[in-house]
Design a protein around this nucleic acid. Structure first.
Lengths: 223, 223
DNA sequence: GATAGGATTAACAATTCCTTAACGTATAAG
DNA sequence: CTTATACGTTAAGGAATTGTTAATCCTATC
């Protein structure tokens, strides 16, 4: 089968069956789980392209699962859609963004879900997907080591942490605020040009093509 | 006149005229309204057989109007068709089904509308057509990236924010006031032509077909 | 407490972006 | 037909942000 792989996670058996049926009918590969823990187990071998997570689940809820998936390097680039019950307290969802790509309100009509899934998977393909073999820079966190084209670099602490942060989500922009609070901590106050200088050193050592400036916003790393 | 009575509700005058002309030509009776409130007033005396409602409207939107009609005993059995902009976020439609009989995607060709109307009046069929999210432009907020036909654009901050605003509700008009307070903030005062210049740059980069001027009102984005 | 490498700062350069002003064009109103 | 009004276009200046460099300040280590 050629369809993309979907992992459907919900504890309500009826809903799972209904949605699974409709997704299968569209030609997708589907596997299901009834809670987050199970989902993670399946995901590690199944390598889904898209995970649909119910927010409310026993054992491990959708938000936790989403977080766990995002943190795992095995699921880099996986698309995550959350199912949220209508009228559910949106504040936690809004306030604590675990990094889902879409939120779908329950009850959801099969047609709606399918077209939403299509859109998500299509969107995924329009973005640049960096295949693993194209990763030009590799980080070894234990050894504070960066490897580019076989050459090893021993970066100083701050430079490494800055790189590490940007590298954690290639392509995503980190604002100066983000960077400051992550690398320096919220209480520390450093001058305006400190980040720039570190960026400069990274560019010098690893090549400026990897560090993109978004003026007025921040920086991002790209392979 | 013997044709069935249609109430056509849309705030865009051009569309109303075009569709009205075509429906009249088919022998239907047509009355029009430019918002939901007006529509309800007319409906109570006009007793339409079919109401065609634009989802996005000022004063009272299509969903609210649909709900109100359904609740009213005076309009028992009225057929309701919703006009939804292509690419519009239909999560509200999915999550909150106000009970429309059909969803028709804008822009709609007169011929298509007419045949749809015929089908609805003849059979009262429910041929729900969830618009396929056929989006030509995708925004990635994390990556500060705009993707059109596979090409990526790194827009400057203000341009990105302006696009982001218009894009948030495709098809809806944002007044200059709206735009100013959202993108520039309420205290900031900028000249009259500032918005135009930014719109121009967006048109230059992404194609002018996506940015529609409503003279005397503002701008809107469309896919 | 001397030393060395790293981190930060300050001053200035470079760049990009935003805004404006002036003029052009279109459309509606008188 | 003239006038008024709103929007479009262009180029240029200035504002804001970032890049660069070198000197200075820290901090861990010997």
């Amino acid at each position: 089968m050629s369809g993309e792989k979907i992992l459907l996670v919900d504890d309500e058996q009826d809903i799972v069956e209904l949605l699974e049926y409709n997704l299968l009918k569209e030609g997708y590969q589907v596997r299901t789980a009834s809670n987050g823990k199970e989902a993670l187990k399946i995901a590690s071998s199944y390598k889904p392209d898209l995970v649909i997570l119910d927010v409310m689940m026993p054992v491990m809820d959708g938000m936790q699962t989403c977080e766990a998936l995002r943190k795992s390097p095995n699921h880099n680039g996986v698309i995550i859609a959350m199912l949220t019950a209508r009228g559910e307290d949106y504040s936690q969802i809004a306030g604590f963004d675990a990094g889902a790509d879409d939120y779908i309100t329950k009850p959801v009509k099969p047609k709606v879900l399918v077209s939403r899934v299509k859109a998500l998977l299509r969107r995924g393909t329009t973005e640049i997907d960096i295949p693993d073999e194209n990763v030009s820079i590799v980080i070894n966190r234990d050894k504070y080591l960066v490897i580019k084209e076989g050459n090893e670099f021993n970066l100083p602490k701050k430079e490494f942490e800055l790189l590490n942060l940007l590298y954690s989500q290639p392509g995503s922009v980190f604002t100066r605020q983000n960077i400051l609070s992550s690398v320096w901590g919220d209480e520390v106050v450093v001058g305006d040009r400190t980040i720039d200088v570190h960026i400069r050193k990274l560019r010098e050592k690893l090549g400026s093509e990897h560090f993109v400036t978004i003026k007025g916003v921040g920086y991002k790393f790209q392979h």
